[in-house]
Write a protein that binds this DNA or RNA. Structure first.
Lengths: 246, 246
DNA sequence: CTAATAGTGTCTGTTAGACACTATATA
DNA sequence: TATATAGTGTCTAACAGACACTATTAG
């Protein structure tokens, strides 16, 4: 091979650089349905279109730190676990120029999102509606078509969550601190797009030990006023090796 | 929220841009052990250190296309399926400046790699040696410590493959066109880092229908000269709904 | 009472692996 | 012959889901 390894060049200046952005798919649960946080763009391109939260990478920060900063600045949410999805790098994806975007996603309960960003009129929650193998977005009666390639990003995030949720504790982030096993099962069924076996789901979840020794624990408290038998509320607690709460 | 959505600015020029590179973890099988393709750097930083194949993103190409181009230019390998791993964006990861790298990985048989790049003296195959929960790299008696953050990239690629290989056809890419079921099982065991049940592995693999209707099919040919009972050679073939080869 | 959901017991088919056994090449 | 790997049969435990049943609230 005769060509030299490009990175060996001592001077980086010769290499053209794209802009590097981060977009954030923030999922939450409203009325037992998945929603994604969006914002209405004011300027071209895609003025008046809804897009994901996003921003450009700042010098000195990692892309994950950038995603957390965007979440903090635009939705006032801090301490959320953000996962990197992948780079979207179609040269035509941004009409303004050469912009590569690293998509990230996070799951958060509506409670937390509402407390943090509830007064922000620029933010919207678009409902994610299964539509055959794909999904569409809806806000009230409106059908939402996101700007840029953000529709594809949302699809990719949903696919990633679907593949990785298997008996993980990822779904708990969508629920409030206390929840019933039925609500938990509903979240799994929403994400997986299929119904699960109730006795087996309950047995397995209650026997499961998640990362850091976290387990589901009954609280002794029960739902009220739901015109049917009350359900016990559970919480995620850290336990020691013997299973006692600590 | 008072701050404006940064991407709404009509002029991108105000945003500082990192360099965007692609690094490629190319895995292959030599003497029944996993190896990763590396190159010795000639210039600072990390002169004389081994690093992954890599290059800077060109205008007009996606990061996946860039990874395929690097593979083609530096190892003369074309038509290889490349998967995106993730972005590595530590601001300190490259002493020359602000360089974000999108790591990709690919699996290829030693046969193909040897035919394509066998005469290139700048390329080396470092052996991947399990070392507790982590892995180390070796070349003969030498312990290899890669330059940049390429050691972490290799670890991340191995973790990703380990998580995604489950009954997928990913491992076939490491083997020649014809192979024994024992060789196939060995690849799975190498990647998963544990031994598998022989009767079950064979039954399940032979009954499995992979993507695009691909199946394992006995060739009627057998290994020779191995001082024990010969094993039948199998190939991956595309079949129609009735299971007949097409 | 009915409607609706909570929670459990049992049965069955599949998955995964343990173990043991026979088969067949080379040296 | 010994040795090493190829390939198979059977048994068992865990996993996953089907189905049915009882329990308990509001109205």
């Amino acid at each position: 091979m005769s060509t030299q390894f490009p990175a060996a060049a001592p001077d980086l200046a010769q290499y053209p650089r794209p802009h590097l952005a981060v977009d954030l798919i923030l999922l939450t649960l409203v009325d037992a349905q998945l929603h994604v946080l969006m914002i209405e763009r004011e300027e071209e391109p895609f003025a008046r279109k809804w897009v994901l939260l996003g921003g450009f990478l700042h010098p000195g920060e990692t892309v994950e730190a950038c995603a957390r900063r965007v979440l903090s600045e635009k939705a006032h949410l801090d301490g959320i676990k953000v996962r990197q999805l992948r780079a979207f790098s179609d040269p035509q994806r941004d009409p303004r120029g050469w912009v590569v975007s690293i998509a990230h996603f996070a799951l958060v309960s509506y409670q937390m999102l509402h407390d943090a960003a509830g007064d922000n009129e620029a933010l919207f929650l678009a409902e994610i509606v299964p539509d055959g193998d794909a999904t569409t977005l809806r806000y009230g009666d409106q059908h939402i078509v996101p700007g840029f390639d953000h529709g594809a990003m949302i699809e990719a995030a949903l696919a990633e969550i679907r593949e990785s949720i298997d008996w993980s504790m990822a779904a708990f982030a969508l629920l409030p601190r206390s929840f019933t096993l039925h609500e938990l099962q509903h979240v799994y069924e929403l994400i997986l797009g299929k119904s699960l076996n109730k006795p087996y789901f309950r047995k397995k979840m209650l026997g499961q030990i998640f990362a850091d020794g976290l387990r589901l624990q009954p609280t002794g408290r029960w739902t009220e006023g739901r015109r049917h038998r009350p359900a016990e509320l559970y919480e995620l607690v850290k336990t020691n090796a013997e299973g006692a709460a600590i």
